Simulated scan of single mutants.
Amino acid sequence: MGVKITELVSATRKTPPIASLMNKSIAIDTFNWLYSFLSSIRLSEGSMLQDDQGLATSHISGFFLRNIYLLENRIKPIYVFDGKPSDLKKTTLAKRAEVRDAAVKKSEDAKEEGDIEGARKFAEAGVHLEKYMIEDCKVLFKLMGIPYIEAPAEGEAQAAHLVNKGVVDKAVSQDYDCFLFGARSLLRNLTQQKVRHIRGKNYPIELESYDLETVLKHLGITREQLIDLGILIGTDFNPGIKGIGPKTALKYMQEHGSIENLYDKKPDLASHLPMDVVQSVRKVFLEPDVTDTYKLVVEPFDTDGLVEFLCKSKKFDEKRVKTRIAAMQRELKKAAQHSLDSFLAT
């Protein structure tokens, strides 16, 4: 879910055209998109797309089309997979699992009652990630010539590390945790879709770009203080203090500078969020478990292998798949006058 600071950073948001990312490299928080595809790509009654073995293919459809969109716009993606979660995250993960289990039950009940809209709504909230889904993604990325990295811990931390080391230009995630991990530049809403459907309403989607330095200057705080702000309102690694929202937390950081100084003035708050927890969560963001030991293996775009995987194995419509690939290749040839393989290899 990530730290909820949209209302604080929205004034710094830029909405650049997709063309501004031409020839840029990006590090993508894979699981962020994976959960999104599994949740949103559904049949009318809420069930996911499936192959003839009953295995979900919604994620494959989502990543295939998103990757085509990135490549035909000459954007160079690198996917980052999460590694082992921090022990501090176990409570959050357990709560999420409970919510998802409850949503699955509500979806099944709604379906039995003939409530198709309710069945879909609850099904979207009941996503369970299976190991085969992750392996599907890796196969797909390899066939499309897109490299990926397996992070030792948080994917967002590794993406931020890649940005700050100059390996890529920008991190991509819907969550603002990338800023707490120190990412200099963040993209949100990197999608080919123009409208998002939420509870029967349509909302326009615009590509969003944020710069950490601009965000901190706008808020009048440091990155360390932004981390403390996040800890006060709650992160994936700790519950926040009830009654403290983003604006109040920002005010506290601007006035007191740190959680220690805040507790000196308001000692009752310490009982809700002990300093040992604060220090542990700070360490997650300030000293993240990341790696420089990886190989960015770029395979040639394998059209035949991709068609075999999508259409023979996963039962996608062959004509549609081939048509979409051909359209991308024509676009790249027209725009850049070189082959897809040479584009990916540069």
Rank of each mutant, 00 (worst) to 15 (best):
Leu49Gly: 02
Glu154Val: 03
Ile68His: 01
Thr248Val: 11
Asn164Ala: 09
Phe122Gln: 06
Ile75Leu: 08
Asp264Leu: 15
Gln53Arg: 09
Glu331Thr: 13
Ile26Lys: 09
Ala157Pro: 13
Asp52Pro: 00
Leu219Glu: 10
Asn238Asp: 13
Ala97Pro: 00
Arg324Lys: 15
Ile28Thr: 01
Ser173Leu: 05
Gln329Glu: 13
Leu310Gln: 05
Ala335Ser: 15
Gly257Val: 14
Ala183Ile: 11
Phe141Asp: 06
Val321Ile: 15
Ile149Pro: 03
Thr248Phe: 04
Arg223Met: 05
Lys295Ala: 02
Trp33Thr: 02
Asp87Thr: 11
Asn261Pro: 03
His128Tyr: 13
Lys90Leu: 15
Leu38Lys: 02
Ile75Glu: 10
Glu287Met: 01
Val307Met: 06
Gln192Val: 06
Glu287Phe: 04
Gln192Leu: 12
Glu224Asn: 07
Val290Thr: 09
Asp228Ser: 05
Pro204Tyr: 11
Ala160Leu: 05
Tyr252Leu: 13
Met275Phe: 10
Ile149Tyr: 05
Gly220Leu: 12
Arg184Asn: 13
Leu340Ile: 15
Asp51Met: 06
Asp268Trp: 09
Ala335Tyr: 11
Pro16Ala: 10
Arg96Leu: 12
Gly118Lys: 12
Ala160Trp: 02
Ile28Cys: 00
Leu344Thr: 02
Leu310Ser: 09
Phe37Tyr: 15
Lys322Ser: 11
Ser58Pro: 00
Ala160Met: 05
Arg100Lys: 14
Met133Pro: 03
Lys84Ser: 13
Leu273Pro: 06
Phe285Met: 02
Leu140Ala: 09
Asp177Leu: 08
Gln53Lys: 08
Ser258Asp: 03
Arg223Trp: 07
Phe316Gly: 12
Val284Cys: 06
Tyr79His: 12
Lys138Thr: 04
Leu219Pro: 15
